[in-house]
Design a protein around this nucleic acid. Sequence first.
RNA 1: CGGGGUGUAGCGCAGUCUGGCUAGCGCACCUGCCUUGGGAGCAGGGGGUCGGAGGUUCGAAUCCUCUCACCCCGACCA
Length: 585
Amino acid sequence: MQITQCTFYQTRGFSMRYSQYFIPTVKETPADAEVISHQLMLRAGMIRKVAAGVYNYLPLGLRSIRKVEQIVREEMNRAGAIELLMPMVTPAELWQESGRWEFYGKELLRFKDRKDGEFCLGPTHEEVITDIVRREIRSYRQLPINLYQIQTKFRDEIRPRFGLMRGREFIMKDAYSFDVDSSAADISYDKMYQAYRRIFERCGLNFRAVEADTGSIGGSSSHEFMVLADSGEDAILSCSACDYAANVEKAESKPFPESTGELLPKEAVATPDRKTIEEVASFLGVHPDQTVKALIVVADDEPVMALVRGDHDLNELKLKNFLGAAELEMATDEVYVKASGGPVGFAGPSGVTVRVIADQAIQGMCNFIIGGNAKDLHFRNANHSRDFDVTAFADIRTVVSGDPCPRCSSGAMEVWRGIEVGHVFKLGTKYSEKLKATYLDADGKEQVIFMGCYGIGVGRSVAACIEQNHDANGIIFPIPIAPFHCIVSALSVKEEPVVKASEDIYNRLASAGVEVLLDDRDERPGFKFKDADLIGIPLRIVVGAKNLTEGKVELKHRRSGEVELLPIDEAVARVRKLVAEALAQ
RNA sequence: CGGGGUGUAGCGCAGUCUGGCUAGCGCACCUGCCUUGGGAGCAGGGGGUCGGAGGUUCGAAUCCUCUCACCCCGACCA
């Protein structure tokens, strides 16, 4: 079985002698690396930091990155997308046209050229790609089209951290689809969704595709591709029974049935110095789920009261989206006091003049406890509609583990941590309208193009892979993105037979298309084993003097630790077979 | 941007509170010997504007002022 050669960038069919290569490994764990992937990438000599959130990709790191890029490329091409390359430096005018020059804020790194012209480093390329398309696409006959690039992005993150997981400069694949209408755009979106599944499967990642908020990119709907890892920065929820899965920012809660209980008379109770839900509930001898928490937020300068059940948390993003607000933040104490009419800790919905948005869970409650809008005062047996007005009921709380699934009847939601490695968006006409990207339809009428955009964090995917694939000794790369498939450890470089056999194996593997690293360094065996484990090469052939007298070498599997003692021919054949199988798509 | 912390050899750190001889230790590096199946051992050696600037002092890594960088927590963010 011959392994396919890649022509775009030579990742495959590459062989190297360790003594002539550049893999600066470190024994000690760097002090300022928090997460395991960051530590291991530094220790394995894959990356080095240049500035906060800015890294050198050393040869080993670059090789893995190129592998991911290549998988991405193959799958994007398979899905009909076309590669191009846009500049990293983009002029302010395009961003002013879309309105994002102001909207994007400090994350956009801006600078001036010698003629005082304003530019920025591209954090994403909707503007630039739309500019290309509006200039070149005239007719419905030219649609659909999907263009992508793999390129370095720069976002001046407030707090870069975790190595390649959240850098300021990072490699990203970004694709943009252009369609005649919304349903055609849905097809493009679905193709990308499927391509993404294939990409992350081929990378050997354990991931979930979840429904997500669209954030500052905008658009109507989106999915995030989340690699499951405890160190993940996002919380995601998935149903134990059906396919429903969503980012915690987006995850829907299931409405409760309207309460049918008998309404008791409302009653004022003194609650001296009891401000928090826990204090009030325990003072009155009830569970927090029989109380209602009133929070004051400011949405685009308007104070709004949000109500959630005492044991629930407000999901600010859901509320912001429900209100259609551009900005939403928790109110300051002054605003709180003014809006509720009482001191902090005693706000309640009765008698307030601001809009009251209640979580839908409250519809299912009766005879609950609310704040009295006065010092040391709460009410018990309060009921909505009867005792206070609600402007609207909405899903505004954060879903938690164990909540019933909003989509099916039997499942319960489970919480996971995830690393966002890909994100697909339906953009609709948000950018095409602003930038006037239109085409003429079959009737000669001008129509606005429907867009989608699709990102993959390449470096982050490698980091995420390491988060999922490591042990106490180091990285355990899956073959498809390993920097080398196999390492040949020549145990003694002073013994002629060992050297000869090692080089023979090395040459045979290399010519069979296996990417092989020959550890020909004059080092003690333990030293070589530690390095081989650390850098995570999936297969290792150990050539030692003793086994060699019987014509045998050792094949060790990095992941399982399994060791096979095999004649040389068999070892070579076995490595070829394992690699070919792992790369078969 | 708010709160906290750290800057001393390539890496990891001690020394700073309580100023004082030539600024130390481990790893790494160089030379030699020895060793070769899980980061060996011995001997010798090189490497420092103590983040930077200014100040106090007979004398500053150490005290004071300013500044820069990096890290952590928070808010924010494909």
